[in-house]
Design a protein around this nucleic acid. Structure first.
Lengths: 250, 250
DNA sequence: ACTTATAAGTGTCTTTATGACACCCAAGAT
DNA sequence: ATCTTGGGTGTCATAAAGACACTTATAAGT
C-alpha cells in the first residue's frame, strides 16, 4: 500500500465527531460613532444560554456556506448591518472551560469599524427573531453582557485605542468627505483626550492619505475644506510617530 | 417555570456533538537562537495526514486537562522543551475549509521565545513517538511543512520582526546575563540588518530594563560589562521610537 | 456698515528620540 | 612597547511631535 493510499484510507475512516472538540464561535464588536459617542452593536439573545441578555453579535461558523472564518465574520456583519466592505480585523481568540455554560468553548473575536451614516439597517432593527441595538461603549460595559462579552468588548476597544495612536484607522469611521476638524474630533472621541490641532494636521498632510475634495463645508463660521481619501489611502497606514497620550486601559 | 429552570433544562438537553463543528487545534512556533541562527522547533508527523512531514508542534486542546487555550499552549511547550515560563504570545487564528484534508479546521497560532541554553530537551529528542528537530527558519520555510504551517511560521516570524522594532521582546531569548553587544547581535539577527551601536545602547539605558550584574565578561579583548534584567523588566516593554529598518515581509 | 464671537487654519520654537560617525579605551598578542 | 580589536562614549544632525500664539473668514448681532 502506498503512502497516499494509506492516507486516503485513513481519511475515509476519519470522523471529526469521534473526538471531544470545543464549541467554536465567531464574535464581533461592530463599532460606529453616532451622536458624538462611540457605540457598539448588540443583539438580545433569543435563546439559552443567557436568554434575554445583550451580547455581541456572533455565532457558529456555517461549515457549508463559509469557506473561512473571515467569510463567517463578513457574513455576520452583512446580516446585521448590510455593510459589505467594512474595516474588519481579528483581535484575539479566547478559549476556556468556563466562558460558556454549554462547555469548553472558543471564540474568535473580530472588530469592525463602520460609518454609521452608511448603515442600511438602523436603530432597533429586528433581524430574524433577534432585537438589535446600538449602545454607547460606556453603557455596554456596565450592563452585564452575556458570557464574557464585556471582556471581549474591552479587548476590542483597547485595540482600537492603541491603533488610533499610530495608524489612520479611525478614518474608516468617517463618511465619504469630511473636514479635518471632524476627523480630529473622531480621534479625540476614541482616545478620550484632546489633541494638538497643528500636530494632527501635519501628520495627515505628510501622510498623503487625504486630498481636498475641492468643496467647502459652510457652517455658521469660517468654511472648512472638505477632504476625501486619496488613492494611496490605506486604513492601516502607520504614521512615523506615536501620539503621546496615555490611554486608560479599560 | 422560572428563567433559570428553563435555562438549566436547556443545558441538560444540549449536546455539542449535535452541531457541525470545525476541527480546532493549537499550533506553536517555538523559536530560539542557536549557532548564530534563528531556529524553530519542528516535529515529524507520525500519523496521517501528512505523515512523515515536518510540522509545527501542536494539537488538540485536551478538554479534560486544559482549562484554557493558554494552558494547552503551555502544556505543549513543556512537553516539547521542558520550559515552563517562556515568552508566549497568541499570534492569530486561521480557519478555513482547505487547510486540513480532514475537513474545516481552525488553528490558534502561538509563538514562544526561549533561551536555547535553558532547554532541558535538546537536539533530536524523541518525545513519545515523534521525532523533533531544531531547524533554521530559512530552511524550514523551504522544506514543505505540513498543512499551511509554512504560512503560520511566516506569520510568527513577521510578528517577531515587527515587535523587535519597538519592544524589548528579544531579551526573552537571552540567558540570565549577557553583554550589550551580545544583545545587539540578537536584535540584528532577528531583523536581518545591522544597528547603530550608540542608538541601541541609548534606548536600553533610557528604558531602565537592564542593570549591570557587576561582573565582566573577559574575552580575548577588552572585557565587556555583563547585564541582567532589572526589577522593572517586562519583555513587552515599548520603546519611545521605532528602529528605522525596513523588514522584508516573508 | 461695524463689531464681535468663533472655528479654520498657519508660523515657529521647543522637545524628544534616533541616525551617523568619529573618537577614546582596555586587554591580549606580537 | 606597540598593534589589533572589539567595548564604550561624545556630539552633531535629522525627524517628528508638542506647545502655543497668531491670522483669517464667516455669520450674527448691534
Amino acid at each position: 500500500m502506498t503512502e497516499s493510499e494509506s492516507e486516503s484510507k485513513f481519511l475515509k475512516s476519519y470522523n471529526p465527531k469521534d473526538f471531544d472538540s470545543p464549541l467554536c464561535t465567531v464574535d464581533m464588536a461592530i463599532i460606529a460613532v453616532e451622536a458624538g459617542e462611540l457605540k457598539v452593536l448588540l443583539v438580545q439573545r433569543s435563546e439559552h444560554p443567557h436568554k434575554g441578555c445583550w451580547a455581541l453579535p456572533g455565532g457558529f461558523a456555517d461549515l457549508k456556506r463559509d469557506n473561512s472564518i473571515e467569510a463567517t465574520a463578513h457574513r455576520k456583519l452583512a446580516e446585521k448591518t448590510g455593510i459589505k466592505t467594512p474595516y474588519l480585523e481579528q483581535v484575539e481568540s479566547i478559549g476556556n472551560a468556563m466562558r460558556d455554560p454549554r462547555g469548553w468553548s472558543i471564540t474568535l473575536l473580530y472588530f469592525a469599524l463602520i460609518d454609521f451614516e452608511a448603515l442600511s439597517i438602523k436603530e432597533g432593527a429586528v433581524t430574524g427573531s433577534e432585537q438589535t441595538q446600538w449602545m454607547s461603549i460606556h453603557d455596554a460595559l456596565k450592563c452585564e453582557l452575556a458570557f464574557d462579552h464585556a471582556l471581549l468588548l474591552r479587548k476590542a476597544i483597547n485595540r482600537l485605542r492603541n491603533k488610533t495612536r499610530y495608524t489612520a484607522l479611525p478614518i474608516s469611521l468617517m463618511p465619504e468627505t469630511f473636514t479635518l476638524t471632524e476627523l480630529q474630533t473622531m480621534f479625540e472621541l476614541i482616545l478620550g483626550t484632546s489633541l494638538q490641532k497643528k500636530s494632527f494636521r501635519r501628520r495627515l498632510e505628510a501622510s498623503g492619505l487625504l486630498i481636498g475634495s475641492g468643496d467647502m463645508r459652510s457652517t455658521a463660521r469660517r468654511p472648512a475644506a472638505l477632504f476625501k481619501r486619496s488613492d494611496s489611502f490605506k486604513s492601516d497606514h502607520v504614521f512615523p510617530g506615536l501620539l503621546d497620550v496615555e490611554i486608560e486601559s479599560l
